[in-house]
Design a protein around this nucleic acid. Structure first.
Lengths: 216, 216
DNA sequence: TTTTGTGAAGCGCTTCACAGCT
DNA sequence: AGCTGTGAAGCGCTTCACAAAA
């Protein structure tokens, strides 16, 4: 059965809580306290994993519903995390790049925790050659005109778009032309791109607004 | 009637599209093309505004459903934007501060577009006095020990928390003690705070994950 | 006894379809 | 003709309530 979108979002967050739990088991009741969602919702969300995830089923041929983790123990992170990963399609390493190395972009270069092999910083780009030469970075930096070549050569799938607002559309089109598959857009504009490129917008003012709405 | 949470989220985004539309009217069909949501959904979402928003109703005493914007014109941004603002509780100016002036935090200091009087950058804080003295900023910067005093004096309601992971919980507690109402947390940890403080987490790896899930 | 797992009930959101306005 | 506004139908998610396991 297909996993509802709403459940996917929660599973993603639940994964983070599990990761922060130092490997200790987590019961649905504890998860309720952490997240605010009812324990039913959490158990139901996890139950969606069972028909689609071989990892989840134990070796003995499953009969009936099949209990997994063990009755009164809570969920074991070392089993549940990979199960969620697999169900959501996150069980494969993806390379990404940072485009625009101003304050925002360069902050992401030196972020620890492109964790657990899920994402790998493959390159940074900027039109300003100075920045490319001066900045310290765990991954190689290139002038912007090499974007197409580098993205292809290293099969970079994702990009963090951190250029100023008025350069964003042009940069995004170059990324799309280079074959990028997904863009995290930090500029406050709606990018117009062919449908094969998935765009997700992250904009501080919108986040502030969402925060203010939740407070009201 | 109460506005469903899902509708609130869409209205918030719709507001952004209206703002980016240069004041031109927007029909529900055009909005469908921009957002991907069906025109029905959009019209329905907007209809939730009508019982709660005096601005929305025109002066002549409304009888029946009451058409507003004018038959075949599309929605007028100068009417719709304030209506959404009001319904979502965004029709009041709020002051915010930036805590932690590293690369990420200082990027937010010089962000244009704390737009339209909705949010006002009131202060920046850092434990490193050098940064406080050197950085250019449109708002005053203070050493961290002045947080409580400044937040109180200027009635700062919101904070962007941009300190490193291992300092985040302590900084958040100081903010809570100072009476802050909402925190946008950029550190990859779950803050434990009293319930009167609303927290919203913004974490790049989670955004990358969400992007990857949508692509699959 | 505690906690998971899940059919089925209940309910809220989305979609439909059409009335009403310009 | 074109587009908005909205009751009502339809459907998908959440919640319930209980069986099964440790």
């Amino acid at each position: 059965m297909a996993i509802p979108e709403s459940a996917k979002k929660r599973l993603l967050q639940l994964m983070r809580f599990l990761e922060q739990n130092n490997g200790a088991p987590l019961s649905s009741a504890e998860a309720e306290a952490l997240t605010g969602w009812s324990s039913c919702t959490i158990r139901k969300d996890i139950s969606y994993l069972s028909d689609r995830n071989p990892l989840w089923d134990t070796e003995e041929d499953r009969e009936g519903p099949g209990q997994k983790v063990g009755g009164a123990a809570g969920y074991l992170p070392e089993q549940l995390i990979p199960a969620i990963r697999k169900a959501l399609g996150l069980d494969r390493r993806r390379r990404f790049c940072v485009v625009g190395l101003g304050r925002l972009g360069s902050a992401f270069l030196n972020f620890r925790a492109y964790e657990l092999g899920e994402f790998e910083l493959a390159a940074g780009f900027d039109t300003n050659v100075n920045r490319v030469e001066i900045l310290k970075s765990p991954a190689p930096l290139y002038p912007a005109y090499k974007m197409g070549e580098v993205i292809n050569r290293f099969s970079v799938e994702l990009a963090l778009l951190c250029v100023p607002e008025d350069a964003a559309q042009a940069a995004a089109e170059k990324l799309a032309a280079a074959g990028i598959r997904g863009i995290l857009n930090f500029a406050p504009i709606a990018l117009k791109l062919p449908p094969e490129v998935t765009v997700r917008n992250v904009y501080v003012v919108d986040e502030l607004r969402a925060l203010a709405v939740r407070m009201a």
